[in-house]
Structure formats: C-alpha cells, structure tokens
C-alpha cells in the first residue's frame, strides 16, 4: 500500500473520462431524453385535445339531431295544418260548386217546366178549339172566339 504515481495516472484518467463523458455521452443522451419527454407531452396534449374535440363534436351532433327533430316536427305540424286547410278549402269549393250546380239545375228544370206548361197550354187551347168546333159543327168565327179561348187557356 504505497502512495505512488498511480495517483497521478488515475487523476489524468479520471479527468479524461469525465471530459469525454461531458462532450460525447451526456449531451446526446439527455437531448434524446428531453426530446422524448417533449414528444410524450405533445402526444398527451394531442390526445386531450382530440378527446375534447370529440366531446364537442358529440355535443354538436346531439344538438343538430335535436334541431333536426324539432324542425321535422314543425314541418309535419305545418303540413298537417296545410292539409287540413286544403281539405277545408276543397270542401268549401265542393259545397259552392254543388250549390251552383243545384241552382243551375233548378233553373233549367223551372225553364223546362215553363216551356212544357206553355206547350201544354197551347195544345189545350188547340184541343179546346177543335173540341168546340166539333161540338158546334159549324163554322165558328175563330176570330170572335179567340178571346174566349185565350181566357180558357190562361185559366189552365
């Protein structure tokens, strides 16, 4: 156990290894560590952001769905209203048309009746005159009796 120059050799070796370590070992390793740390932090950040985005998107989707449903309900309601309105309108129109047709038919019937009545009246007058002619067997002054016949016909 003698103190000798080994002590100096050891010190030189010591400083050399420490220097080498500082220059060529420490920086790359710590740089890699730091970079990985940053990467992981970034990754975690991104994951968090993504989950937040997902949450947001879900919320948006729910909202859109709700809005869509509301809109659909409104549209259906409107449609129903419109449908009933159209039905009502059609009903009204049909009623009006029916009334009109009925009135027209009535008028026509009345007209026909009148016409038939006129015709009948004329025939009756002729028949009455013919009958009277036959009964009298004589010539009758048609002109003289025309007034009488007219009166008769009007009474029919």
């Amino acid at each position: 156990m003698n103190i000798n120059a080994t002590i100096i050799g050891q010190a030189i070796a010591f400083f050399f290894f420490a220097w080498f370590c500082m220059k060529f070992v420490w920086p790359p390793v710590t740089a890699a560590l730091r970079e990985r740390q940053k990467k992981i932090a970034d990754g975690l950040d991104a994951a968090e952001r993504a989950s937040r985005d997902l949450e947001l998107a879900k919320e948006k989707a729910t909202q859109a769905l709700r809005e869509g449903k509301e809109q659909a309900a409104t549209i259906i309601e409107q449609a129903n209203k419109r449908a009933s309105q159209i039905v009502d309108e059609a009903k009204d129109a049909a009623l009006a048309e029916g009334d009109r047709l009925k009135a027209a038919a009535k008028a026509e019937i009345e007209q026909e009746v009148n016409r038939a009545r006129e015709a009948l009246r004329a025939q009756v007058a002729a028949l009455a005159v013919a009958g009277a002619e036959k009964i009298l067997q004589k010539s009758v002054d048609k002109e003289a009796q025309a007034e009488l016949v007219e009166k008769l016909a009007a009474e029919l």
């Binding site: 003698n2 080994t6 002590i7 100096i8 050799g9 010190a11 400083f15």
Partner: peptide, 10 residues
Amino acid sequence: VNVTMGMSLS
C-alpha cells in the same frame, strides 16, 4: 489507495 485518492484529489 492510489486509485481512490487519485479520484478524490481530482
């Protein structure tokens, strides 16, 4: 002891 003292003296 030379080795350990070499380091500690450094």
